[in-house]
Amino acid sequence: MEYIADRITIDPDLCNGKPTIRGLRVTVQTILEYYFAGDSREEILHQYPMLEPEDIDVCLQFAVRLMDNHYVLRK
């Protein structure tokens, strides 16, 4: 199990290896989808009471860090 920023967990046996929040069965992708669909932080925290406000912050930071990678498009 790998931890990123002490809040993002990557475990091949949890949620098919997708990044999750603190080893919970809540993926970073799920939180980002709610956030960018217009749900407020408060709504997300209400839907997922096991989360902390910092968890949402680290999801956004994680997404930004992914953009630091170099990508190659193949035909």
Rank of each mutant, 00 (worst) to 15 (best):
Q61N: 09
G23F: 09
D6P: 00
I31V: 07
E33D: 15
I56F: 06
M50V: 11
Y35T: 09
E2K: 12
E43N: 04
D6T: 05
Y34K: 15
L51E: 11
R74M: 03
R65E: 11
D55H: 14
P49V: 04
R25F: 06
I56D: 09
V72D: 07
P19N: 03
L14A: 08
K75A: 03
R7H: 08
Q47Y: 10
D68C: 01
K18L: 11
I31M: 04
K75I: 00
A37S: 15
N69S: 12
Q61F: 14
N69G: 11
D57I: 04
I44D: 03
I8E: 10
D55T: 13
I10P: 00
T9A: 09
D55F: 15
I8F: 11
H46D: 12
D57N: 06
E42S: 15
R65L: 14
L32M: 01
Y35V: 06
E52S: 05
R41T: 01
D55E: 12
V64F: 13
C59L: 02
K18V: 05
I21L: 03
H46S: 12
F36D: 15
K75R: 00
A63R: 12
C59W: 00
V72M: 08
R65I: 14
E43D: 00
R25W: 06
E52G: 06
L45H: 04
T30Q: 01
D13Y: 13
F62R: 01
T9P: 02
Y48R: 02
T27K: 05
I4R: 15
D6N: 06
A5Q: 11
V58N: 10
L51N: 14
L24V: 00
I44T: 10
R7Y: 09
H46L: 06
Y34G: 08
C15N: 01
R22I: 07
D68K: 09
L51W: 12
D11M: 08
P53Q: 01
G38D: 10
N16T: 10
R41P: 02
R41F: 04
Y71L: 14
K75F: 04
E52F: 15
I8N: 12
Y71W: 15
